[in-house]
Simulated assay, not measured.
Amino acid sequence: MSILKVSIEQVKAARALLRWSQLDLAEASGVSLPTIKRLEAVAGEIGGREETANAIRAALEVAGVVFIPKNGGGAGVRLKK
């Protein structure tokens, strides 16, 4: 079962909420720093392999981020209570 994709904008916003650098995300997700940098250089849904996108999303969720789907107001992120 795959995890729904999120956008690079959501990933960047999530990193900002956590005060994480790209290196922090790379270490938490197991995705290489060059891959994180490459993915964040392009707007829109996370590109690349599905496993990579799932690892990034999972790392951010474990750290306390909740991804908000598009619901008329646009997709977003917030921290868990």
Rank of each mutant, 00 (worst) to 15 (best):
K5M: 12
V6R: 08
I8C: 13
T35K: 09
L39T: 10
A43K: 15
K5Y: 10
L60R: 00
I46Q: 04
R38A: 15
L17C: 08
K12H: 00
L33T: 06
S32E: 13
E51A: 15
T52L: 07
V66S: 07
A58D: 14
R38Y: 09
A14G: 06
T52H: 06
E40V: 08
L39C: 04
L39A: 09
R19T: 12
I46G: 08
L17V: 06
I8A: 14
V66D: 11
G48W: 10
L17T: 05
V62D: 14
R49G: 11
G47S: 08
A13H: 01
E45A: 14
K5F: 09
V42N: 13
A58M: 12
V6H: 01
R57G: 08
K12R: 14
G64Q: 03
V31E: 05
W20V: 06
K12N: 09
A28F: 05
R49N: 14
V66I: 14
G47A: 08
R57Q: 09
A55Y: 03
A58N: 11
I56E: 03
R38W: 04
K5H: 11
A53Y: 02
A43R: 14
G48C: 10
D24V: 07
V11E: 05
E51M: 12
A59R: 00
W20T: 02
L4P: 14
A53F: 01
L4D: 15
L18A: 05
W20H: 02
V31H: 01
G30W: 01
N54S: 15
A43H: 11
R19Q: 15
E9Q: 13
G44M: 07
L33K: 12
G44F: 04
G64T: 04
E51P: 00
L33S: 02
V31W: 00
Q22Y: 07
D24F: 08
E27G: 10
V65M: 06
Q22P: 01
S21A: 07
T35I: 11
E61M: 13
A13K: 08
G30T: 02
A43F: 05
R49T: 12
K5P: 14
T35L: 12
L23N: 12
A14E: 02
V31P: 01
A13I: 00
D24Q: 09
R15P: 00
L39F: 04
S21V: 02
I46A: 04
K37W: 00
A14S: 09
V31D: 04
V11K: 01
S7V: 03
L18K: 03
L18S: 07
A63S: 09
R38S: 13
R15S: 07
S29W: 04
I46R: 03
L33M: 09
K12G: 07
I56N: 02
L23A: 15
